[in-house]
């Protein structure tokens, strides 16, 4: 029983960051129809910035995470303006190739700047785990969970309650009509990509201190973000949130009770299973295959 609670707690902490990654990716796909291969690199970018600000420049830990998010937003906006905007009229495969190119260049840029050796990001939290009844958790992980929950709520508020969110939803539903209604669709695209990128960068800055930061850390995470998006249905934000937590719990319990070595395979098995059984994802009412 203690073990089950411990696994559940670990899964929920991890799930929060997975959800952030999934939301960013699904938003970009849903609104822009872009399969974003740079998502994992934005995650690594955020983690490296956390390292830069905290370990090298000795800035405040919380300020560093906020700065990493801002930088992620800026890099995302830049990618959109330089690479995606000119290719707006091209098909999805062409855009995908450009994103693959950007992914390779970004990842190796990180390697060039930081070298291949993994970095450890210090955190201001006590190293002693908090013991709550039968389970224990590092204070840093609790902070990460709190931060992701706040971000998730904030994001829902943004999408659901603000004029900007309404414009985004309108663009998602019907780009042409939205444009006719006077919505600046091009601006919405840039903003969407930048926001999604910022979420990935925050996820990296939050998870970086828990694990280690290295240049290829984005690869597996980027692929997992795809798994989450597929699980929730492409373009479905609630689906991605639930999908993030589901994937983390599946991994955690799968690793605990089935095989610790196949931990990272569970996500991909989930994708194949979902697509074989219910291609539109588990949380979408209507099919969006195509």
């Amino acid at each position: 029983m203690d073990q089950i609670l411990q696994h559940a707690l670990n899964g929920v902490v991890l799930g929060g960051t997975y959800a952030l990654l999934g939301i960013g990716l699904t938003l970009i796909f849903g609104i822009m129809r872009v399969v974003n291969f740079t998502h994992g690199e934005l995650y690594a970018f955020g983690a490296y910035l956390a390292y830069l600000f905290v370990a090298l420049l000795h800035l405040d830990f919380f300020l560093s995470i906020a700065l990493a998010a801002l930088a992620g937003f800026a890099l995302g906006a830049l990618i959109e303006l330089v690479l995606l905007r000119p290719l707006r009229s091209n098909d999805i495969d062409t855009v995908m190739l450009v994103m693959i190119g950007a992914w390779i260049a970004l990842q190796n840029g990180e390697q060039f700047v930081w070298g291949g050796v993994a970095k450890l990001v210090p955190s201001p939290f006590a190293q002693e785990p908090l013991v709550i009844g039968p389970v224990s958790v590092a204070p840093l992980r609790l902070f990460v969970l709190g931060a992701t929950l706040v971000l998730l709520v904030g994001f829902y508020w943004l999408i659901d309650r603000t004029r900007l969110g309404m414009a985004m939803r309108a663009t998602f539903q019907d780009r042409d009509t939205a444009a006719l209604m006077g919505i600046d669709v091009r601006g919405i695209y840039t903003l969407t990509f930048a926001l999604g990128s910022a979420l990935a960068a925050i996820a990296g800055a939050l998870l970086g201190p828990i694990f280690l930061v290295n240049p290829t850390m984005g690869n597996l995470v980027g692929l997992k973000a795809f798994a989450i998006v597929i699980l929730g249905g492409l373009g479905n934000i609630t689906g991605a949130t639930i999908g993030g937590f589901v994937l983390a719990l599946v991994e955690e319990f799968g690793a605990g009770y089935l095989s610790s070595e196949y931990r990272d395979a569970f996500g991909f098995l989930v994708i194949i299973a979902v697509l074989a059984l219910r291609p539109q994802g588990f949380f979408a009412r209507k099919a969006r295959v195509g």
Partner: peptide, 18 residues
């Protein structure tokens, strides 16, 4: 081929990763 486009891409990536 039950699914196309982006789905096909992601299925094939997942297959290689598994």
């Amino acid at each position: 081929f039950r699914v196309r486009g982006a789905y096909f891409v992601i299925v094939t990536i997942s297959f290689a990763e598994v």
